[in-house]
Amino acid sequence: MAPSAPQEPGLSAVPSYEEEQSQARFDALIDRDARVEPRDWMPEPYRKTLTRQVSQHAHSEIIGMQPEANWITRAPSLKRKSILMAKVQDEAGHGLYLYSAAETLGTSRDELNDQLLTGRAKYSSIFNYPARSWADMGAIGWLVDGAAIANQVPLCRASYGPYGRAMVRICKEESFHQRQGFEILLALSRGTEAQKKMAQDAINRFYEPSLMMFGPPDDQSPNSQQSMAWNIKRFSNDELRQRFVGMIAEQVKVLGMTLPDPELHYDEVKKQWIHKDLNWDEFMNVIKGNGPANSQRLERRREAHREGAWVREAATAYAAKQAQSEVA
């Protein structure tokens, strides 16, 4: 923020005439459900909320590469290896679009990366679970990407233009990923006993964390209401979770597998899906950094950053030399 002349304490809280006008224009934009673009004036809390959300989303794409990259070299067929490589590479691409969108809000990619490496920024906590078996590639695609899509399709209409536009492209690719994940599980579900067991085990482990990807229940999600008022979020956490659980309850039948939730059923009276209580203590604990793989995930990012430092320095030095020789 630009330095301003010292003011009397308390006076800065009173908006100027210009600020009031800008706020009114912004409010009208949101009321019309129009798009806010980078050059438009926006209230600081809106900018801050979006920067946090978009960068967390970018970090999630980047950290989310790791559990899947873990199986690229061991993929059990060359076709699966090729699809998995394409998928993980797509995620790096998604991270890049999202960092670009976040940069339009005024924070540089270096700063955002630094927030991730120093543990100040969060990312989707589901990536702090280890990908133990090949079937996890299926469960991550079907459940984790599936939950991500349910969350992200409404974000294509988010009020901030660059975010919404990035999401359109990302959602298209995510549905390819989800399909690939489902196909992996489908092949396993029709395979040997050991393969079926592997698939069921992966579904058992990822079911609950994927439901928690939508965030805490509505009555415990204090920021949701403001995000909805700003047209960033279009549906509440619980609404999205409902939509997702209903979808996977049907899809799991195609696999001939089960979801690890004996309570799961559709309540005709309440017109909603009832699922088991989710373990929010565990969720909060993973967010705090105590998930099984938090330490490993961050260290891999730090290591790549550290080991790549000389390469980035060389590229910068070379670019500077080139620029100099062009001037000369």
Partner: peptide
């Protein structure tokens, strides 16, 4: 993949 010096 996931270990390169920069995302690009």
């Amino acid at each position: 993949i996931s270990r390169a010096p920069e995302l690009e």
